[in-house]
């Protein structure tokens, strides 16, 4: 196939990231590759990835250079800058020129200019409406990224997002599968108890559910626990409180 070098490199990155979905991989290594590839393929001088921890704090996970890494760390400490804004808003920050006496990020801008950077871009890493981090692209010279560069960068950020989420999913697969089964079993027990109460109280299934919820509340029992006792006969269906809904006030 006859790709331009840049397209070839972007496709190589996509394929590497896709490959990592099926193979065992180190998520930090994947993101370091992504940062390096952004510098190679896009018109930027440094790239880095920040990811949110479980508590929602951003952490620097990968950087294409040490200067980039220390600037990103500074950004987190100063609690201001393009990456934080892209992460918090979920919106990209594109072609932001860094100028002295910046009012938006005064401390970040001074430090970035000292480090020799003159324009910044930050793309949110998003999937299904949730933002898990940001891809940061810094340039030494001023000037804009082309529309193609922006599209390519967002494409890389999207695939990295999928890689990370799939990685987290497989790390948590045991736990999540367990949660899924418990949730499903609890639903099954509730449906069984609803059937028993509907039959014994001669009400429909929705009303039976209201009776169960009301009884659980009155007797300080968990709904699933109560339903389990009803379904297995520990609590007789006829002993469930008969609930008369309060008459609404006029």
């Amino acid at each position: 196939m006859d790709f331009m070098p840049r397209e070839a490199s972007i496709i190589r990155t996509l394929v590497e990231l896709a490959d990592n979905l099926v193979e065992e991989y180190d998520v930090v290594e994947v993101l370091c590759n992504l940062s390096d590839r952004c510098v190679e393929t896009l018109n930027v001088d440094s790239a880095g990835v920040m990811l949110a921890s479980a508590s929602g704090d951003l952490q620097v996970v990968a950087s294409s250079s040490d200067a980039m890494r220390s600037l990103e760390l500074f950004e987190i400490q100063a609690n201001e800058g393009p990456c934080l804004d892209a992460f918090r808003s979920g919106e990209p920050i594109l072609n932001h020129e860094l100028l002295q006496n910046d009012l938006r990020w005064p401390r970040f801008t001074k430090r970035a200019l000292d480090d020799g950077f003159h324009s910044v871009h930050a793309l949110p890493m998003r999937l299904r409406g949730r933002t898990i981090g940001a891809l940061n692209l810094f340039r030494i010279s001023q000037g804009s990224l082309t529309a193609n560069d922006v599209l390519a960068a967002q494409g890389l950020a999207d695939v990295a997002t999928i890689a990370i989420i799939q990685h987290r999913a497989s790390l948590e697969a045991y736990e999540l599968n367990d949660q899924l089964n418990q949730a499903l079993n609890s639903r099954i027990i509730i449906e069984q108890a609803k059937g028993k109460i509907a039959e014994s109280a001669k009400v429909d299934l929705d009303q039976a559910f209201v009776l169960l919820r009301n009884h659980a509340r009155n007797h300080n029992l968990g709904l699933t626990d109560l339903c389990r006792y009803v379904a297995n006969g520990t609590i007789s269906s006829v002993s469930i409180d008969q609930f008369t809904p309060p008459t609404p006030r006029r």
Partner: peptide, 27 residues
């Protein structure tokens, strides 16, 4: 926590009606 993902449940058939019927029949 404790709930089934709505996105999984949409379009799924977990035969809840069978469990409702089992409750009724057991009574």
């Amino acid at each position: 926590p404790g709930t089934l993902s709505q996105e999984i449940e949409n379009g799924a058939n977990f035969h809840f009606v069978v469990h409702q019927a089992a409750g009724i029949l057991s009574e």
